[in-house]
């Protein structure tokens, strides 16, 4: 069925069955391949995007549920200052190894910092436990979150 999605501040028409997971619409129909497939059942966080400001796992979100709501993917995360600060912390600390999980990590972090600008380690554990990094970049992810939070606090 024809749908209109609002992705990264643009309206885009798509043709997809209502129950198609948003992930495959983004990746296969729209070519937004920054959002990754990792498990397909909501366990790894590789596919996280923001729908109406909330982090969602697109592999288990039917496209119809996102219709009409603003969607932000990794390709659009730099539209937002928090997104840019997080990206630059990621580069400054050399967080990525293979990088495959990092789009999902960054999307989860941006959502965390929007709701909890100065997260504690426990906040980080709670918000980030759904994002697997098989390369094991967790120590740097944690450090980069703290660095981004500090920067957001010092240069509001």
């Amino acid at each position: 069925m024809p749908l209109t999605l609002r992705i990264n501040e643009r309206s885009v028409p798509v043709e997809a069955a209502a129950d198609t997971p948003l992930l495959w619409v983004l990746r296969d129909e729209l070519g937004l391949t920054g959002t990754k497939f990792g498990c397909g059942i909501g366990l790894c966080g590789a596919c996280v995007v923001h729908v109406a400001g909330q982090p969602v796992r697109t592999c288990v979100t039917p496209v119809a549920a996102a219709e009409g709501k603003p969607i932000t993917t990794i390709e659009g995360v730099a539209h937002d200052r928090i997104g840019r600060v997080v990206q630059s912390a990621w580069l400054a600390l050399g967080v990525p190894q293979c990088g495959y999980c990092q789009a999902g990590q960054i999307m989860s972090v941006v959502a965390l910092l929007r709701n909890t600008p100065q997260p504690t380690d426990a906040d980080i554990d709670a918000a980030m436990a759904g994002n697997i990094c098989r390369c094991g970049t967790y120590a740097r992810i944690r450090a980069a979150i703290h660095q981004a939070a500090r920067q957001l606090r010092e240069e509001p």
Binding site: L32, G34, I74, V77, W90, L91, G99
Partner: peptide
């Protein structure tokens, strides 16, 4: 230390291309 990662900027912007990201005209999945 602190040498910029060759692919770091592409990774944090979602531009880095992995095997699962290849898209060709008329491609079947």
């Amino acid at each position: 230390r602190n040498t910029r990662l060759a692919d770091g900027a592409d990774i944090v912007c979602g531009r880095a291309a992995y095997g699962i990201d290849t898209r060709l005209e008329g491609m079947l999945y």
